[in-house]
């Protein structure tokens, strides 16, 4: 499977990474190199194998559940302290038109 330049542009767009036209070819070569190498996985027989999701070494443990209590929040200044554009107590972005 080899990625064409249209696919490279589509992936960059999905990932929201601006890709200059001049860089498409280089990115295409690099990704195809990596994907070509990854391709060897197709040869592994995985019939009947349950996929391993998560990193737990001894099978998946059940999720722990916390009690329903308000233990966080109430810190708008800290939440907004790193904002590139803060307007009053909001984060601001260029106007979104829908």
């Amino acid at each position: 499977m080899s990625l064409d330049s249209a696919t490279i542009r589509r992936i960059a767009s999905l990932a929201r990474i601006r890709l200059e036209e001049a860089d498409v070819g280089r990115m295409q070569n690099e990704l195809n190199g990596i994907l070509g190498w990854i391709e060897q996985l197709q040869a592994v027989n995985t019939d009947g194998v349950e996929p391993m999701a998560g990193g737990a070494p001894r099978g998946e443990p059940a999720m722990r559940q916390r009690p329903d209590a308000v233990t966080d929040g109430g810190q708008p200044d800290q939440v907004l302290a790193n904002a590139p554009d803060r307007a009053h107590d909001y984060f601001a972005v260029p106007k979104v038109v829908e």
């Binding site: 554009d85 307007a87 009053h88 909001y90 984060f91 601001a92 972005v93 260029p94 106007k95 979104v96």
Partner: peptide
């Protein structure tokens, strides 16, 4: 809330 911005 603003002419050119959306607030979050």
């Amino acid at each position: 809330q603003h002419a050119t911005k959306s607030y979050i």
